[in-house]
């Protein structure tokens, strides 16, 4: 790959008998916003820890900005920013003290790279004398991101930055990432929230230490090869059970207020399905064709 920022080749990692990563390979381009999408325990954190030189793989090689994660680990550490899943700033230092500390550790100053963090930091600057431990969840997140960026890294690793934050903070955080993209920083972000995949340039869907699929969100959803229907009636629980008993059913999954349904026939007969559901006593049945989401694809690929 041209302009390759991160390269992973055949990486495997096992903890005792537990396989965390199984022969993983992929590349990330410079300036790309790349998402690792998968549930808890799928291997996201192990992968990020290997790329940030904090964990050794059992086998395989990986490089960040053409530096090897094992032999060049010291060099890599200067070039990357890392925001771990758990808030790991100094709770007893103030906002300002934390930021100055991280700048000085990397041999720089807040002033020198202020332009990079300005859009994020100005939101918490009014509270710069407050101890980090006393900030709200959203503000902690902004401070952690500022600290991870203050040395102007080439690559930024974010491990589940939006887990446990409310919808408003989540949205703000993704808006910040979009702005950073314009500053030519490669970003690798992990998340268990499938809906965040659409906000990435490319994503790897991960499950049980394996990559199920890797591509742009658009291509992944366009490759869903079945007609997907969104079905609704007044009793969701009975609707799920009745659809599962329908002889042509291929998959039945609850998606919020609706049921997502695929049929074993390439050209499903919705009239017959209406008829079946009416016979089962469902009223006000609604069957609509719908576009698959990343979550539909993930479920399909897991099977």
């Amino acid at each position: 790959m041209e302009n390759c920022s991160v390269s992973v080749k055949n990486i495997s990692k096992t903890y005792k008998t537990n396989i965390a990563l199984s022969d993983i390979s992929f590349e990330v381009k410079k300036g790309e916003l790349f998402g690792l999408i998968g549930p808890d325990g799928s291997g996201k954190t192990s992968l990020i820890r290997i790329l940030t030189t904090l964990l050794m793989p059992d086998s395989g090689t990986a490089s960040v900005e053409n530096l090897d994660v094992i032999s060049d680990f010291k060099e890599i550490r200067k070039k990357i920013g890392y925001m771990p899943g758990r808030f790991s700033l100094y709770q007893d230092l103030s906002v300002e003290e934390n930021l100055n500390f991280f700048a000085s550790v990397f041999g720089t100053t807040v002033e020198k790279n202020y332009s990079l963090i300005k859009d994020i930091y100005y939101q918490i600057e009014p509270f710069k004398k407050r101890k980090a431990g006393q900030l709200s969840g959203g503000m902690k997140q902004k401070l952690a991101l500022s600290c991870a960026l203050i040395h102007k890294p080439d690559v930024l690793f974010l491990d589940e930055p939006t887990t446990g934050v409310d919808a408003v903070s989540r949205k703000e955080f993704w808006e910040m990432l979009k702005q950073l993209k314009n500053k030519e920083i490669t970003i690798i972000v992990s998340t268990p929230y499938m809906d965040e995949a659409d906000l990435c340039d490319r994503v790897a869907l991960i499950q049980k230490g394996e990559i199920l699929k890797i591509n742009t969100p658009k291509i992944i959803t366009s490759e869903f090869n079945k007609k997907l229907f969104s079905i609704k009636s007044e009793n969701k629980y009975r609707l799920i059970n009745d659809l599962r008993e329908y002889k042509y059913n291929n998959s039945v999954n609850a998606f919020g207020q609706h049921i997502h349904y695929t049929d074993i026939n390439p050209k499903p007969d919705t009239d017959e399905l209406y008829k079946y559901l009416r016979e089962k006593g469902h009223h006000s049945v609604e069957i609509k064709k719908t576009e698959p989401t990343i979550e539909d694809c993930f479920i399909d690929l897991m099977k």
């Binding site: 998968g38 549930p39 799928s42 499950q207 999954n253 609850a254 979550e295 993930f298 897991m302």
Partner: peptide
């Protein structure tokens, strides 16, 4: 929070059943 999408739906199936 955090479980895979299939397990998540199995969990909701149990909730619907209880309800």
């Amino acid at each position: 929070g955090g479980v895979d999408p299939i397990t998540r739906r199995q969990f909701w199936d149990l909730i619907y059943k209880a309800a």
